[in-house]
Simulated scan of single mutants.
Amino acid sequence: MTDKGDARHLTTAEVASRLEIKPETVYAYVSRGLLTKIPASGRRGSLFREDEVARLAHGRRHGGDRRATVEDIVSTVSRIEDDQLYYRGRNVADLVTAHPVESVANLLWTGELAPPPEEFTAPTEILATCRAAVAALPDSVRLTDRMRVAVTVAGASDQLRFDLSPQGVRRTARILLAVEVDSLGTTHDSGTLAHRLGPSLSEHPIPTDLLDSTLTLLADHGLAISTVAARVAASARVHPYGIISAGLGALDSQYHGAASTVAYRFLAEAIPDPLAAASDRLRLGGGLPGFGHLVYQTTDPRAELLLTELRTIPAAQSALTAIDTLTTHLGAPHTAIPNIDLALAVLMHAYHMRPDAGEAIFALARTIGWTAHTLEEYTEPPLRFRPTRTPTP
């Protein structure tokens, strides 16, 4: 234990011992705002205020039968620390391009970074039923709406949907990812997810490795609102099809899954004249779509990694030039941070994708993360988010 000013501080190991948790869980608490990490001057590691740790320990001991809140969720699926994103303790920067998204999914689901034992495909009869249902929709229906229909139909068609064992959940997840991709009108129903998804997004060929990298970057991001929705459903032991439906429903928002579409439209205005486009948006009293982030302070590492890859692609240069101009002229540093929605918008413009393509990429990728959180939530007490008192009318 060390003193720093008037406060007493604990090391990571001391916090873990005091709370009877693993050291990696300490950083999960940091990601959720339950603990404040303080850089340890002149030494490696971090320090934590003893009084803050004590309050947390007291709440854990005396919670009694109090039901859980979102702040009580402690997940080891991913964490955000020092503007870096980690999956199961591995920096996403070390995973992207080095491992296919199927292996990253296996990491998030099992903790093992290895190719999954089976290809992500759906039984023929389930896929045929999903395709028929989706084909009945009008051509104007968005890709994510088609995914929602496919997920619902697949769930109704799968007699094993209530197999909630880890093996059963992983089996269902492979089917879910397959029907989300293969019900969109592509002719492929084998090969990698990125290979099968590309033709539904654009008439122009999209490099499979680039699309695969994008899926990896979007696979999980802690307790985003759609992930919380998925976990609440999982706490009631809803089957995985219902859980993914809950996640997809929460994703359908301008503040969440549709943010890339908003950024795409703004970027279309900004490419010919970046400052004029920014001026128009600012005059209307809103921020600039695709810039800034609630969590990251200096850089969104997902955007940085994707934009770095896009800088090698000639077709992306006009959009990147517009972003560079805006970044140079924007004010406070946090408002000048290009986020992952803007990087997705650049990808969409470079390959002439559908305006809703970013939402579909996001939904497919996040299905992987929701599955990991489902597996984790299934190990918690059921219905832990249910209120204990009837609200006053």
Rank of each mutant, 00 (worst) to 15 (best):
A122K: 05
I271S: 13
G155K: 03
D82Q: 12
R196M: 09
V74S: 13
G64Y: 05
A229S: 14
S165V: 13
T388A: 13
P115A: 10
V15K: 05
H256C: 07
L294F: 01
R90F: 00
A7E: 14
L223C: 08
A332N: 13
S31W: 03
Y255Q: 11
A270C: 10
A40K: 10
V74G: 12
D252Q: 14
K37D: 13
A93F: 00
P387W: 09
M348N: 11
A54W: 08
L176G: 02
F48Q: 03
S165Q: 12
A278Q: 04
P333N: 14
A233P: 06
Y241D: 03
G331S: 15
Y87K: 04
A259H: 11
A322P: 06
E81L: 12
P387S: 11
P274M: 14
R283M: 08
A133S: 12
S75T: 15
V53E: 08
L320Q: 06
T214K: 06
Y378M: 12
A263H: 05
T69M: 11
V228Y: 04
T374W: 00
F48S: 02
L19E: 06
F48Y: 09
T208R: 02
R265D: 14
Y255M: 13
A114K: 07
R302M: 00
L288A: 02
S140P: 04
V232F: 15
L307H: 08
V104M: 01
L342E: 03
D72V: 12
R281L: 10
L282Y: 00
I175K: 07
S41D: 13
F120K: 00
L160K: 11
T312K: 15
L47M: 09
